[in-house]
Nucleic acid binder design. Structure first.
Length: 653
DNA sequence: TTAGGGTTAG
């Protein structure tokens, strides 16, 4: 109290003394300062605190925080005033008191920020923060939400292991964490694509006798949809209903979106129509629901039905948003109706929405795909004039657009500009360029680009490695491909199916068919294979003239059912034609059709090229007619070179 | 917690 009597001059001298005299920090002196600070804070004399803040020691800050721990607002104000001071930034214990108080007063955002700051800027590990929080819970009223918040902070800064260690440690300390923290961690695992780990953690959670809440069930639906396990995802919905938990619109939306992505639009529509009934009238479609269905129809090649859904949406009083229009714009564009896409965009503007980068990106992408470089450039200028910021998508689209239209050097120049401006944040654009450089046999250029990624702090991803590996394989340099593969495994990037298929193709091209078969066996053992793997091996057998092996494999694949597609038949048809067994090849077309597979332009070209070498024009025309009647879309080059002259000849004779 | 646009394989 006596300090209150100090004149402002003597107070200043007192503070100056604090700056100069380190000896002042003896406990007696600290008590005096502590009381002085507390009095001034209570009287809201912040100027005093502000002047003193840089001189506060760790222990003083800690004592002040303890003193005011039951007045969250006051404590927060003190924190705001002294947040830059060394006494606070050095003290994990003081920060933990703050965190306890913030969480206790439901000020989660500030608590999360503080935790993140401790881990990112101050370098404390999640476990160190946890231990400090546990220790400080002796002086603060313990609150489980603090630990939940720490798990959340860890997932937000992306430390997957950190969050898991926190959960584990809490169990060891017999502190229970809430289902919300588990959900948060599970959600994080899904976001980073670790679905396998998701299921492990989920099972672990259940083994500790936690009960799923609505969010957990939604996460299960989300995970199952990501894995295309649609019927299991639907059964989660029924499990929810059985356990008396009413699904919310998010769960329905994830199911509907999952069904669309799994190419089961009819299920998506059924769920969409029945969501009201299933939820006892509690849930009705929202904008996300409509957007999912609209996207489903667009990706299925039916943008006009998608637009009908948009009209229905408006009728039902659900307001379309920018994503609704962006989806439809892309839907029309990707199906070749750019004019319609522009019309939809105009409607959007009339409805008061401004085209964003997603809308521009779609237009630019599809203009480039159509070869309309000037149209794309025009739109890009328009984008800049309207101050719409370009993003990573824009950069990739421009890079690919230029490469695809034969301007690889322009693409490289553009890419360098992006990199120089520090605008490159992900590996996408690099991967596109690496792919085009490999295609043009410039593997050393591609390798340079990978090196530049490291220099810029960009981590090459699976696609980067896969593209380089494929480049080497295509160039017939399987040794280098395997060397890159080994490097990739060393940096903890697991090979995926695409990469294994590339290596398999490389081995087949090198006629190392025995090694290829060994690789396929290994892929089968790991359960990482698809129809492409088998087609590649089949093609390898055919190229190597291994007739018996080829036919054995073909029979096995057909027995397997799902491991056969049009390409399988094309390989065999080509093989038979090569050996002059044209009739057998033609018979395979009937087998194909009986299996519900439609011959494609490759089948068409293979058969007609082979037939034209040995038979009359009349036969060529007959085969063309037969294939077209069976639904084949003729390859234009083959038609011009072989069929058209044959038709003329047949007519003339 | 859910929805839009860009990369790799036969």
């Amino acid at each position: 109290m006596f300090l209150g009597l100090f004149s402002s001059r003597s107070r200043t001298l007192f503070i100056r003394g604090l700056h100069i005299g380190k000896h002042f920090t003896s406990s007696g002196a600290e008590d005096i300062i502590f009381r002085a600070v507390c009095v001034n804070i209570r009287q809201k004399k912040w100027k005093f605190v502000d002047q003193l803040s840089s001189s506060l020691t760790n222990s003083l800050v800690y004592r002040v925080f303890l003193e005011f721990r039951s007045s969250p607002q006051m404590l927060l104000e003190i924190y705001q005033r002294i947040r830059g001071c060394k006494g606070l930034s050095d003290s994990l214990e003081s920060s933990c008191i703050l965190i306890h108080v913030m969480v206790g007063s439901r000020n989660y955002d500030d608590a999360l920020d503080l935790m993140k700051e401790l881990m990112i800027s101050k370098g404390y590990s999640p476990l160190e923060v946890l231990e400090a929080l546990i220790t400080s819970s002796d002086v603060c009223s313990p609150n489980r939400d603090v630990f939940d918040a720490l798990v959340r902070a860890c997932t937000q800064i992306g430390t997957t292991e950190g969050s898991y260690e926190v959960i584990k440690k809490l169990r060891m300390h017999s502190y229970s964490i809430s289902i919300h923290a588990w959900n948060n961690y599970l959600n994080h695992l899904l976001k980073i694509g670790h679905v396998g780990r998701f299921w492990m953690v989920y099972r672990e959670m259940i083994s500790y006798e936690y009960y799923e809440n609505m969010n957990t069930f939604n996460l299960l639906i989300y995970a199952l949809c990501k894995e295309c396990r649609l019927s299991e995802a639907v059964s989660v919905l029924y499990r929810m209903l059985k356990s008396g938990i009413l699904p919310n619109v998010v769960g329905f939306n994830m199911l509907i979106d999952g069904a669309c992505r799994a190419d089961d639009l009819s299920l998506a529509v059924i769920l969409f129509e029945k969501m009201g009934t299933i939820s006892n009238g509690f849930v009705s479609p929202n904008a996300v629901t409509y957007n999912c269905i609209i996207n489903g129809y667009c990706k299925k090649g039916k943008p006009e039905i998608a637009e009908e859904i948009l009209n229905k949406m408006i009728k039902m009083d659900v307001k379309p948003n920018i994503r609704t229009y962006a989806t439809l714009v892309d839907g029309y564009s990707r199906n070749g109706y750019l004019e319609e896409a522009f019309r939809v965009c105009n409607n959007m503007v009339e409805n008061g929405l401004i085209p964003n980068s997603a809308v521009y990106n779609s237009f630019v992408h599809w203009l480039y795909m159509e070869g309309d470089i000037s149209g794309a450039s025009l739109l890009l200028s328009n984008m800049m004039e309207n101050y719409i910021p370009h993003d990573q998508f824009t950069h990739s689209i421009i890079t690919k657009g230029l490469c695809r239209n034969g301007h690889v050097n322009e693409a490289l120049k553009f890419h360098n500009w992006v990199v120089e401006k520090n605008l490159s944040e992900d590996a996408f654009s690099h991967n596109i360029l690496i792919n085009y450089l490999c295609r043009s046999n410039n593997i050393s250029g591609a390798k340079q680009l990978v090196c530049s990624m490291f220099v810029r702090g960009l981590i090459p991803d699976q696609v980067t490695y896969g593209t380089i590996i494929d480049g080497y394989c295509k160039a017939g340099n399987i040794e280098s491909a395997v060397a890159v593969y080994t490097d990739m495994v060393k940096v903890d990037k697991n090979p995926n199916l695409v990469i294994l298929n590339s290596i398999l193709d490389g081995l087949c091209k090198e006629e190392s068919v025995d090694v290829s078969r060994f690789l396929v066996d290994e892929m089968k053992r790991l359960n990482v294979y698809d129809v492409i793997s088998f087609n590649t091996l089949l093609n390898g057998y055919c190229s190597a003239g291994k007739i018996k092996e080829a036919f054995d494999l073909f029979t096995k694949m057909r027995k397997g059912g799902f491991l056969v597609n049009e390409v399988t038949y094309n390989i065999m048809i080509n093989f038979l034609c090569k050996f002059g067994l044209f009739e057998h090849a033609k018979e395979l077309v009937s087998v194909m059709l009986s299996q519900g597979l439609t011959p494609d332009f490759v089948t068409y070209t293979t058969l007609l090229t082979s037939l034209s070498k040995k038979d009359s024009s009349e036969e060529v025309v007959k085969l063309h007619d037969y294939l077209v009647l069976e639904g084949v879309i003729p390859d234009s080059q083959t038609y011009e070179a072989i069929v058209s002259p044959a038709i003329k000849e047949t007519y003339v004779s």
